[in-house]
Each structure stands twice: as C-alpha cells, then as structure tokens.
Amino acid sequence: MSDSLFLDSIKPLFADISERFSGESQFDAAGAWSELVATGFLRLMLPEQDEGAGLDVTEGLPVLMAAGYCALPLPYAETALLYAAQPTLAADDQALAVGLSTTAGRAKALRQDLPYLQALLLDTAGGAERAAVSDSDSGNWTLQGIPSPCETTINLQLLGTAAECLQLAGALQRVLELTVDYANTRQQFGRPIGKYQALQQQISVMTGHCHSAVMAAQLAASGMQRSDTGLSLDHHRVAAACGMIKAACQPVVSTAHAVHGAIGVTEEYELHHYTRRLLAGRVAGGSESRWFEQVGQACLDSDASVFDFTLASLS
C-alpha cells in the first residue's frame, strides 16, 4: 500500500470522529478510540513482527498530519509515535500521551484539550514512567495506582512536542485551505474579497508560513529514525523543525481570522477548531523560543560554521 492509500483509507474516519465530537453533546470518546484501534492504524509505524505496518515516520507522516488536518480530538498521533518509540507500549492498545510533572496525584498531557486518555508517559528523575489516568478536570488527569517504570530512553518531551507539531502542520494546511476558499467566496464591494491586493499579499505571506511548516514537518519526520528497538530522535533536527512549525502558528491564525471576519469567531463556523489547536499547540511542549534556544546552543557548542552545522545537524 502506498502512502496515499494509507491516508485515503483512514482520513474519512478521522473526519467522522471529529464531526461527531463537535456536533454531538454526548461524544463517545472511548467508542471512537475503539474504532481507531480496530483499524490497526495505531500500529502504522510498528515493525511487522509486532503486527505493525512497518512504515517509517516519513512514510507515516501524511497520516499523522491528517489527524491535525481533521482536528481529530483523540491522541492518535501521540499514541502511534509512542508505540513506534517503544513497541511494548502497544500491547494493550491504550490511548497514550506524553505528560508533564505530577502534583498531588494529577498530571497534565502536553496537549491539553484531549477528551480521552488512558495513560500518560512521564519523565521523572528515575527515568520514564507510565501512569494510568482517568477523569480529566480541565486537562488535569487523575493518576490511577502507582506509575510503572517504562523502559524507553527516548526524550519524551521532544517526542511529545514533535507529535503535536506534526499535527499542527496538518492543521495549518487546513486553515490555509479554508482561508483561500473563503476569500474566493465572500463578496464585498461587488467582488470576491480575494481580488483585493491587501488580502492577496497577506494570504501569500500566510502561504509561505504554511509551506515552511510542511517542509519542517518532513524534516522532523526524517529526524525520527526507526530501528528494531524503537525510534531514535535526531534531537537538533527535530527541535529546529518543531520551532519552525510553532513559529508559523500565530501569524497564520491572525491572517485566517482577519480574512474570515466575524464569521470566523463564531462557534458554528469550523475555523476555530483548527485555530484553537494552533494557538494551544504552539505552547504545548514549549514555544518556539525554547526549541530555538536549544538549537542555538548546539550550534555554539559545535566547532562548525552555521552553514555546516545546518547541513550536518538540521537538514
């Protein structure tokens, strides 16, 4: 199966779950998760001996981005990447995400708007731990029982941030499409507003941000290499790419809302599902400054020119 066949076969379910989430007062998140489990797509990037599809992250990227493109309200990309990072995590098909430090038996996921989650992966002084969770109260998940050690050595913060950023790249694509469609449809002064140079110039700049983010997502994916034992992260390449995607979020959101006018800030119109995600996602796991500063430090620590550092560590 080619990349696009994978994408074509799962995207309708992503869109359907997203529609149910925004349209129904009683969204059955656990039921939707079971539907995702049944597709086998959580094992997209697991080796074939672990009943996976054997894709590397670059091959799986269109599906990971599609979760963001569809504003999927479930931790699909997070879970699929965590399974790929540590195949033993896939044993019981649980919905996973990377979490932040615990206080008083509670923890947050990097992504704060999740309606459903079964366990968080937490970085602690003693190594990675897996904590079962239930009942989110405004994004604060209640820990169930005692967290168990998790054998992964991967940088969970970076992996969680990357999972978020690959989805943001998909959300940026969707926001660009909505904005261009709206500019071609909405008429003022007797013609579509997309005919006015002031908006054309803004949408061109927005296009540049979105295209940069999509290329950055490909760079991030290329920096997440799969081996028999899991994923290894090319830290600086992934960090640089995450910084670029995060840096694109605010300007794209601003222009999208400016072009849409008042309809864009209504509950009824779909734009806010994506722009909310972009604004929250920009901060989740650290804003662009956090990741850019790490990249800058790494460049200074190397003896190379900026150009050579870029070739060797970021490209």
Binding site: S212, M215, A216, L219, R237, A240, A241, G243, M244, A247, E288, W291, F292, E293, Q294, V295, G296, Q297, A298, C299, L300, V306, F307, F309, T310, L314, S315
Partner: peptide, 11 residues
C-alpha cells in the same frame, strides 16, 4: 536568535 536563523536556513 542563532537557533531560529539556523532553523530557518535548514527549512
């Protein structure tokens, strides 16, 4: 600043 400029260069 250095990290941002290097990241932009890479992309």
């Amino acid at each position: 600043a250095l990290g941002e400029l290097a990241s932009r260069l890479a992309v």
